[in-house]
């Protein structure tokens, strides 16, 4: 693909995206409109994340792509291959070695460090979207800090179910100002958002929005004082590496409905196994 520019997008487009990113970093949690380009993969399949990554990648970077926490899911493979072809950057499956990580629906288990960039793929950037379908109205609500409706939703959950009934894409308040959708990560991952040493960038291609969290930003999951936010945790260790602190995938292993629980973060799990940790289902 020698006839395409580095990382596919032309320089003007990258400049436009970087300007949006800078605005997003300057106003943490605020959704910056940007002119999303038509990419070779469909809207809804990570074009926002791909455009953000394309805008920030340099030839010296080491790029990791995960989907559902794994490097080997088909869409992660496809996106990694795309950047290998159009940017020729080195790719890696190791979280620690990567300089730019594009992710769909998970934050890696390993703590990220300064100098790393985490790029999230976002389907619906607007946390109020399902309470108020009109974009014109939600933009006003953000600018006027009218978030009563969001709390009404949480109130209704508790009155109906006894608990807040949101388990992923759990809304957060950033630096005490903007309510933000952290993308469909499980609420288990929410605590990692705040005070992270790495830069976090969020790209929504189809909805044409970019937002960002600079390092060490205050991020608080919405809750009530008497119903505080709980990052839920499965009560099993990982069947392969025995980790007790990671998010687990549930696998159906036989016709009788037998279950096994394995770390969703494949790099984390493999590294632990290589270091000698063994779960009850490991060979």
């Amino acid at each position: 693909m020698t006839e395409y520019n580095f990382a596919y997008l032309d320089e003007q487009t990258k400049r436009m995206i970087r300007r949006a990113i800078l605005k997003g970093l300057a106003i943490p949690g605020y959704q910056v409109p940007f002119a999303s380009r038509e990419m070779p993969m469909p809207y809804g399949w990570g074009t926002g994340g791909v455009q953000v990554s394309a805008a920030v990648l340099t030839p010296q970077d080491r790029f990791k792509v995960i989907d559902q926490g794994a490097d080997d899911t088909t869409n992660a493979v496809s996106i990694r291959a795309f950047f290998q072809r159009t940017a020729g950057v080195a790719t890696t499956t190791s979280t620690g070695d990567a300089t730019v990580i594009q992710t769909r629906h998970r934050i890696p288990e390993d703590t990220l460090s300064e100098g790393q960039i985490l790029v999230y793929q976002v389907p619906i950037p607007e946390p109020l979207r399902f309470l108020e379908p009109r974009e014109s109205e939600t933009r006003k609500m953000h600018s006027l800090q009218e978030y009563g409706l969001m709390h009404v939703k949480l109130y209704e959950d508790i009155s109906r179910h006894g608990h807040i009934a949101t388990s992923y894409a759990y809304p957060v308040k950033v630096e005490g100002r903007y309510v933000m959708d952290p993308s469909p990560i499980p609420k288990f991952d929410n605590p990692k958002l705040g005070d992270m040493a790495a830069i976090q960038l969020f790209g929504a291609g189809r909805e044409q929005r970019i937002y960002a969290l600079p390092p060490y930003t205050q991020v608080v999951s919405l809750d009530f004082e008497d119903h505080p936010f709980e990052a839920s945790k499965a009560d099993h260790p990982c069947g392969m590496c025995a980790a007790t602190d990671s998010y687990l995938d549930e696998l159906i292993v036989d016709d009788a409905g037998g279950r096994m629980f394995v770390c969703s973060d494949t790099d984390y799990c493999e590294a632990r196994q290589a270091a000698g940790h063994k779960g009850k289902d490991a060979a």
Binding site: P42, D67, H163, A165, S167, P186, R206, Y247
Partner: peptide, 27 residues
């Protein structure tokens, strides 16, 4: 935009589904 978002539901969503499962089981 329509087909992209419609067809994206074919992509793996098991991590979020897992969260929903846990919540539902708890409730």
């Amino acid at each position: 935009q329509a087909t992209g978002f419609l067809e994206h539901i074919k992509l793996p969503h098991y991590v979020d589904f897992q969260s929903e499962l846990e919540l539902l089981r708890k409730l």
